[in-house]
């Protein structure tokens, strides 16, 4: 496909001042013309410089070779005075207006660069956002594995998870029945026991009292669950608040149970 730029500035100059035969003479004309142009500035008040696009004005231009001597002015065929505003033809250098492929190619190239820029920018933004996510050492500490075989029936184990205590309670059948027998509507923070456990035997709660953040004592209190020594909140075997100033049930963290291994986090 033809590139639109085929005419460099030097080609235009050469065509425009193409009266002399040799390249050396063209150069000489260029030099003297530039010099003369400034000299005659005062005299050429009626002169006009007009700019036209090459593709619009297409006039045939014929030139006759003339001798260019020292101090010779623009006495060439095409710049001979009024009424001779002949413009050289750039027909050889312009493209067919009917040729759509060049336009399509231009749009294609623009679109392609836009595509690559967008893809690169997307990748860069993605990298920056990934930079903000939790780092590997934080992620490595974020999960805690618990071997459930080490927790006998009816016992509660305290595990440190992200700096907080987590209670893992292996509940007996009586405790499960007790947790299910409560009238839900009578609770300060109504929640069914099934919503708080994945399997009924294992209860996992964050050991921080929802009142003012003390750590409750396990297997104590009026309801067989936890008792907060700071202000006397009583939690039941499902970690629900039953009595005292605490407004909410003990929080249940995210965890998964796979066989005898529990992963908290």
């Amino acid at each position: 496909m033809a590139l639109p730029v085929k005419i460099s500035a030097s080609v235009i100059n050469r065509t425009f001042f193409s009266t002399p035969n040799t390249t050396a003479a063209v150069k000489a004309v260029g030099a003297t013309a530039a010099a003369k142009f400034t000299t005659h500035k005062s005299a050429s008040k009626s002169s006009a410089v007009s700019i036209t696009s090459a593709s619009r004005t297409i006039t045939n231009f014929t030139s006759s070779p003339k001798n260019i001597g020292y101090q010779q002015r623009f006495s060439s065929g095409f710049a001979a005075g009024p009424g001779s505003e002949k413009v050289p033809s750039f027909g050889d250098y312009t493209k067919e207006r009917t040729n759509d492929s060049s336009r399509a190619f231009t749009y294609f190239m623009l679109g392609a660069s836009g595509t690559v820029v967008a893809a690169t920018a997307q990748s860069a933004v993605h990298g920056f956002l990934m930079n903000m996510s939790a780092s590997a050492d934080v992620l490595a500490m974020a999960k805690v594995e618990v071997d459930l075989n080490n927790i006998p029936l009816g016992k509660t184990v305290t595990i440190k998870w992200r700096g907080k205590p987590v209670f893992v309670k292996h509940r007996t059948q009586e405790e499960i029945d007790e947790a299910n027998s409560v009238t839900i509507k009578s609770l300060p923070d109504p929640q069914v026991d099934a919503d708080r456990t994945q399997t009924p035997e294992w209860l996992v709660v964050v050991g921080i009292c929802t009142h003012l953040g003390c750590v409750p004592i396990s297997d104590s209190g009026d309801f067989g669950g936890w008792y907060c020594p700071c202000h006397g909140s009583h939690y039941d075997v499902s970690g629900r608040i039953r009595k005292g100033p605490a407004p909410l049930n003990l929080e249940v963290p995210e965890y998964t149970i796979d066989g005898s291994t529990m992963v908290i986090g």
């Binding site: 730029v5 005419i7 460099s8 500035a9 235009i12 425009f16 000299t39 005659h40 005299a43 050429s44 008040k45 009626s46 002169s47 006009a48 410089v49 007009s50 700019i51 036209t52 696009s53 090459a54 593709s55 004005t57 002015r73 623009f74 006495s75 710049a79 001979a80 005075g81 009024p82 505003e85 413009v87 050289p88 750039f90 250098y93 312009t94």
Partner: peptide
């Protein structure tokens, strides 16, 4: 770069100063 400048010389162009 395709622009073309056309110079219309004045009537006394050929007269030497």
């Amino acid at each position: 770069k395709n622009r073309k400048i056309v110079f219309n010389p004045p009537s006394n162009w050929n007269t030497p100063t």
